[in-house]
Design a protein around this nucleic acid. Structure first.
Lengths: 190, 190
DNA sequence: TGAATTTCTTGAAGTAGTTCAAGTTTTTAA
DNA sequence: TTAAAAACTTGAACTACTTCAAGAAATTCA
């Protein structure tokens, strides 16, 4: 169902029926199995992913060999490596499905031609990216000002349903502390 | 001089002469004195700032009363609180000049009407924001994977001239460690 | 269903940083 | 051109977290 994306777009802009047809003709839904990768470190990222259903994540493997999740993407979020995408350089990241997911994968070539045919879409992506950037600014603020325990409680208070969906060790690394410390926070042993 | 902004825009898109005129007629250069604020915590941010000359920063005051710099904006960067800007909510941040600076302050109302008259500008802001988002993704990666000392050296290697321009304590907080620890790193006492 | 795999827990020992306080150096501005 | 303010340095004591290792619980899938 492309409806999820069309609904999301129409929260920000209005499309002509002909534009909707054009857009729909370019979209393709893909199914990504849990743990499957859509991007690995070293590959150039030419695709933007819109999550229709499920959950994706961006992560790296650090020098100790441990995975660290930098970003989650759930329903109605776009996820990609923007630096690799724009500069045609090898990515530093992995993009992987955390749950069985349905995504709309928009190839750069396809997207570029869509943006030319439907200039109004530029506006949609401009607004959505600026909002994501704002969210990222807040994230840095939280990382800088809160203790590990505060970050856990804050996240848990704001996204209680999401906390149930992902393994604790992934969330721990996203909040920038160890899986073991997460266990202790949850057990009240800190 | 608006030339700095026009040059920057024309790196990404091409404007008609009439569009350039229109754009120029809406721009105004302002001078911000070192340490002057253009936004304080609690105010709604309705303006985007393009740095023509000088250096601006976004910071917060943490629970200990210490300033923590979250972002710098130098020549050819846009700086604003995107969340406050888009959602009309009070900002969590301060925006301040680090050096005497010249900025183009683009009011939301003015920008909105410009974007309608020059739809191509949407493309410019879309690309610029996506690239900034990419830079932010890398920043999180560095914060997550490098030690304080590594972050300092990495920044110093990549932006040696910038390191000279700002007080060390601001850079220390931007790299997420204390001013005292920065001193010790520089003295080789770690 | 049950064996394999993945995820979570626990405690003990270690460490990369912070905090504090005081002194020194550099910059600013009258 | 000097007094005040801002920025930087230093060492000692502390602490919020990590690391390691091993076992327990939960989940997956053949």
């Amino acid at each position: 169902m492309y409806k999820a994306l069309l609904d999301h777009i129409e929260k920000f802009i209005t499309l002509e029926p002909s534009e909707i047809d054009k857009l729909e003709s370019c979209l393709e839904l893909s199914t990504i199995k849990k743990k499957e990768h859509v991007l690995k470190e070293g590959q150039v990222c030419n695709i933007m992913y819109f999550v229709v259903k499920g959950c994706m994540r961006q992560y790296i493997i650090n020098h100790k060999g441990t995975e660290q999740t930098l970003q989650f993407g759930i329903e109605n979020w776009w996820i990609t490596d923007y630096l690799s995408y724009h500069n045609h350089i090898p990515s530093s990241f992995y993009l992987q499905a955390v749950e069985n997911s349905e995504v709309i994968a928009l190839d750069k070539t396809v997207l570029e031609s869509l943006l030319i045919e439907i200039p109004n879409l530029e506006r949609y992506f401009r607004i959505v990216t600026q909002k994501s950037f704002g969210a990222m600014q807040m994230r840095i603020k939280f990382l800088f000002t809160m203790s590990a325990e505060e970050r856990y409680h804050h996240f848990n208070d704001n996204f209680p349903e999401f906390v149930q969906r992902v393994p604790q060790y992934m969330l721990a690394s996203y909040l920038d502390f160890s899986a073991e410390f997460m266990s202790k926070i949850r057990a009240g042993k800190v």
